[in-house]
């Protein structure tokens, strides 16, 4: 019997409702798959929402070509095991122009290899509803975003002019050129995500678990040296530290945290105790206070 009353059950039911609504009302929906823990939860929810049928939309991964190696191998295993329809897209123009996280500048790199790449992929396939795993507790501009969040032609988010969203009555209608971003796990917190992964035995990326990894200390951040493209200064030498990651992204832009949490139980405990904001380990957000709102209005997830 489904037990009533637990927070996770309520969150899960509402997320499933949003996923079903998306599948039922959009011409061509797609689910973003970024390989991280939120994507893993989203994928699990999609399996539940449409069970015993298959997931009725493809998955889309935007590959910047600077992801951790362990992310890509994990992605391919998940796709194979679950028989998923995965589309991988990279911004070829950016690759040809040699855009990279070291010399291009972080915000320009993000704009070209993530935001522009995403817009290219959505346009190319004509997706009108893109499901993402953003949560309102991550960041203050996300805290204001609707669950069904309208994008004007050119994927522009106009935070001053959001479509009113009342009750659970969703207006998913679009005009020519408009599209929708959909956030089924808006109300989940980081702790909910881990508790749910634990409860549902969802497989997550090994990078979340602590183990000795080669890192260098840059400023206050520990950056993992994942391949030989990492430009080391003469005095720098990677050292092995027992670390794990709280969020996953491009390896040169995602800081590790020192931790000995190597099991799910330990991670859940750590998340509940260590009171550091999650995105503090993200190098791309911190540039200025409103950087997320700005990135989002250009089409970033």
């Amino acid at each position: 019997m489904l037990s009533a009353g637990t927070i996770l059950d309520s969150l899960e039911s509402e997320s499933i409702e949003i996923l079903r609504e998306t599948a039922a009302t959009f011409r061509k929906p797609v689910m973003m798959y970024s390989i991280g823990k939120d994507s893993s939860v989203l994928l699990h929810l999609a399996k539940k929402a449409f069970f015993p049928g298959p997931i009725p939309f493809p998955l889309l991964h935007i590959d910047t070509k600077w992801k951790f190696k362990e992310m890509l191998s994990f992605r391919d295993t998940v796709v194979q095991e679950n028989n998923l329809d995965l589309i991988v897209h990279s911004n070829q123009d950016g690759i040809d122009a040699g855009v990279n996280p070291f010399t291009t500048g972080v915000s320009e790199y993000t704009r070209i290899m993530k935001t522009m790449a995403l817009r290219q992929a959505l346009d190319k396939h004509g997706f009108d509803g893109a499901i993402g795993g953003s949560r309102r507790d991550e960041e203050k501009s996300r805290a204001k975003e609707r669950i069904f969040s309208l994008r004007e032609p050119g994927h522009i988010w106009d935070p001053r002019n959001q479509r009113p969203e009342l009750w659970r009555t969703y207006n998913t209608r679009l005009n020519v050129g408009q599209s929708m971003r959909v956030f089924p796990i808006s109300d989940w917190t980081e702790a909910d995500i881990w508790n749910y992964i634990y409860r549902e035995k969802i497989e997550v990326n090994p990078l979340y678990f602590a183990k000795p990894r080669p890192v260098v200390n840059r400023g206050t951040q520990l950056i993992m040296v994942d391949d030989d493209r990492f430009p080391l200064s003469e005095s720098e030498k990677p050292e092995l530290k027992t670390v794990r990651f709280r969020t996953l992204g491009c390896y040169p832009l995602t800081a590790a945290v020192e931790s000995i949490a190597s099991t799910l139980t330990e991670i859940v405990e750590e998340v509940l105790q260590v009171k550091l904001s999650e995105r503090a380990t993200r190098l791309i957000d911190g540039e200025n206070e409103d950087s997320m709102e700005k990135k989002k209005s250009e089409g970033y997830f």
Binding site: M1, L2, S3, A4, D9, S10, E12, S13, E14, I16, E17, R20, K47, K48, A49, F51, P52
Partner: peptide, 18 residues
């Protein structure tokens, strides 16, 4: 009453089921 985790006897209030 079908769910991913198996059939159930009762679909409680606010649950998303088939």
């Amino acid at each position: 009453i079908v769910t991913f985790n198996g059939d159930v006897e009762i679909a409680v209030n606010e649950s998303a089921i088939t």
